[in-house]
Nucleic acid binder design. Structure first.
Lengths: 247, 247
DNA sequence: GCAATGGTCTTGTGCAACAATCTTTGGAAT
DNA sequence: ATTCCAAAGATTGTTGCACAAGACCATTGC
């Protein structure tokens, strides 16, 4: 039974790769990867002509891809000026963390209700994200730690068992990656929180949901603070955002 | 000074009427109205050719309008099959209310923190939504009661002071309107909740945030239950429509 | 030095043709 | 009669083009 369950989940994700054949979506995928990997920096302009030419797609299709990315908040569209890689402000960070507290907090509380009702859902996804993060840290793979951290928080949000919450959560984390590119090194950011994740997972396994919520919310507060401090120190550099994408 | 402030606010809203001259947006407006008024039923297919022909716009323009509506989750787009008026399922209702509890609950708690910190934000928007609802009920305008109820919950969510939460909240309420069409009469749905809104507003004015949260969450539970019951009783009729996402 | 003006480039909008895909219809085999 | 297959028909996906409108840039004149 457990095997067949794994089969289906694997097939579901595989299906998406097969079915979604739309050119615009594939173009959006390419551009999304470039933005996520930091190959085009926030603030950079994405010129229609050059990209459409490079990818060998029509301007119309490219614009459709832009609309998809705009919907994901990864790019912004300025009338008659074109689209630019999203440049997050302090206000965005505050807003995103406010939403994270709402969603992750609600998800953990919802999970707690199930625990109190005597039917605790599995925490294995949360625990495995912690394990993955620790393993990555031990081999010095701080990029891997960041990925594991995202998995951790996504699995926290998944406890709400709501596709809409899952979707929004993924979007928020994707937005945050835009900010991480401005950070000097990811180690300083993620390392302090490995312990928090571990602690939260342990509390959950013990069924102590209230305390888990408290630790989580405190974690989010500190992460927000640290990000905002980083922001303040790099404010000067960012304001002169040139467009390195113009090859 | 106050006069000029009024000027600007008036101009801001007037500006929107001017700028949004795009044909696609006007087409989207027309289609949105048709969906909202129930003239095209959930599950119905929106064929490009016939609509483009009827409205005398090019297919491209119509497709752009479809993208806007898709963004608002009012229609769904299936590759190579076309767009369909969104058909909400019981699962959607459960999902939407789960998210509402998360967002409205978090917003009210956030407001409560400010109250406890000795700097209570204004509750006037919440109160005025209640007043508007009562006035509409007194003159038998149950459509107006529904609008006021939406204002009430939007102003609750606005307490979180987060543009992202505001946006999601508006989207959720718009989605719910798709469900209200299956309801026989809106009076039975909204009337019981006029008192809840009144009670929540009063509790907030007294600074008793914890109790306000409790009443709100209980309200959401009951509203969800009622909607799901209505769903079950009309399940037979609705299943006659096309089944888009059944694979 | 600075503002106005004009040209140039990019984007906004709409259109029609062609390609790709799905759906239906008709018939043949079992 | 039923099932399966294939071609036809209908619908959507993508492209390239054309023109309008706005933003950007450099030159001119003061």
């Amino acid at each position: 039974m457990t095997d067949s369950a794994d089969w289906t989940t694997a097939l579901v994700s595989a299906r998406q790769t097969l079915v979604r054949a739309s050119t615009a979506e594939r173009v959006a995928d390419i551009l999304r990867d470039m933005v996520m990997e930091g190959r085009v920096l926030p603030g950079a302009k994405l010129a229609e002509d050059s990209i459409a030419d490079a990818l060998q797609v029509s301007r119309n299709t490219l614009r459709e891809a832009f609309r998809l990315l705009n919907h994901e908040r990864l790019v912004v569209h300025e009338l008659n000026r074109g689209v630019f890689v999203r440049l997050l402000t302090e206000a965005d960070v505050v807003d995103i963390y406010r939403m994270r507290r709402a969603l992750e907090g609600a998800a953990l509380r919802f999970w707690g209700e199930s625990v109190d009702a005597g039917r605790p859902p599995a925490v294995s996804h949360v625990r495995s994200a912690v394990t993955m993060g620790v393993a990555a840290a031990e081999r010095g793979d701080w990029d891997g730690v960041g990925t594991a951290n995202m998995h951790f928080h996504r699995s926290i949000a998944a406890l709400a068992d709501s596709t809409r919450i899952d979707e929004i959560m993924s979007q928020l984390l994707a937005e945050l990656r835009l900010v991480f590119h401005v950070m000097p090194t990811v180690r300083d950011f993620y390392e302090p929180y490995l312990g928090d994740n571990e602690r939260i997972a342990t509390l959950m396994e013990a069924g102590r949901s209230q305390e888990a919520v408290a630790v989580l919310l405190d974690y989010l507060d500190r992460a927000e603070d640290q990000l905002l401090r980083q922001f303040a120190s790099t404010a000067g550099r960012r304001s002169e955002h040139a467009d390195p994408a113009s090859t």
